[in-house]
Design a protein around this nucleic acid. Sequence first.
DNA 1: CTATAAACCTGCTGGC
DNA 2: TGCCAGCAGGTTTATA
Length: 312
Amino acid sequence: MPELPEVEYTARQLRASIVGATICQAHVFWRRTLGHPDLEDFLVQIAERRIAGVRRRGKFLLLDLSGDLFLSIHRRMTGNLLLLPPGWCIDTTLQQLDPLAWNTRGPSFHAQNSAVETSYSRETEYCRLCFDLADGRRLLYTDPRKFGRVGLWSREDEQKLFEDLGPEPLGEEFTSARLTEGLMRHRIGVKQALLNQRVVAGVGNIYADEALFYAQIHPSRRSDSLTPDEVQLLREGIVTVLSRSIEHGGTSFNDYRDLWGEAGDNYNHVRVYQQDGQPCKRCGAIIERIMIAQRSTHFCPHCQPLTIKGDQ
DNA sequence: CTATAAACCTGCTGGC
DNA sequence: TGCCAGCAGGTTTATA
């Protein structure tokens, strides 16, 4: 699942490859993927826009466009971006009468150069949205499960769009004081608090587990019971695991791919996520898996005890 | 405020 | 081998 590191890594790749390019037109293959505005306005407004910049806010990828517009892309569970070199065609032989009637698979893509095709063709399945660039390249939004959302907004909409998002964990605003404020406001488990995007933006299931392991805090600990030292360590853990994953190109357990269709390497570096049954890398105890708020949660029962060390 | 569940979706896994 | 139930999870919305 794309969380902050995966979105950041994609943003960096996009920044190096498509800033300055022009979108000549867009295709929509699944109506609900487009969250805003309606289809007709979207197709008219997106045409002939220059891509002026690429940003990220939490798990949102943002493309700044000419004319004070921007695209927001939230990939949710299985969404990916794929940049195809020139020479790729959308297969029209299977084109249906209703352009929005592509259900499970999305349209097929084929390349003139078959050698290029083999490395990309798997990733072109499940295309929900396609941006045709003036230089012949195509930017695809793919999403098997269709949970992700793409929106086109004007500059003035931005503040309202993100008013509920918490601090950026890799920004200067993410201080221990700020994290404390978010944690103390809730009387819920600390893992649940970390998944709340108002507490900190961009942390999802993988990095919540990894950060709690780093700080040696049990995921079920009440968020308002953490000591100042624990909060500080947790802040450090969040920054560390997110930064480390960006360096490794993100975590690919199932669906995440980068702009070129490549898997990220960070799954080789996780400490607890999906490591249940394996020995803890710190102490050797067996990693456990429990359910917290309907999400699988992985932790080391020895390194992350529920009772505070030295207490009683 | 907190908790729970359903909805959105499809690929995958495990049981029979 | 094949069918089917159940699971996975980010976010929103509804309900208790």
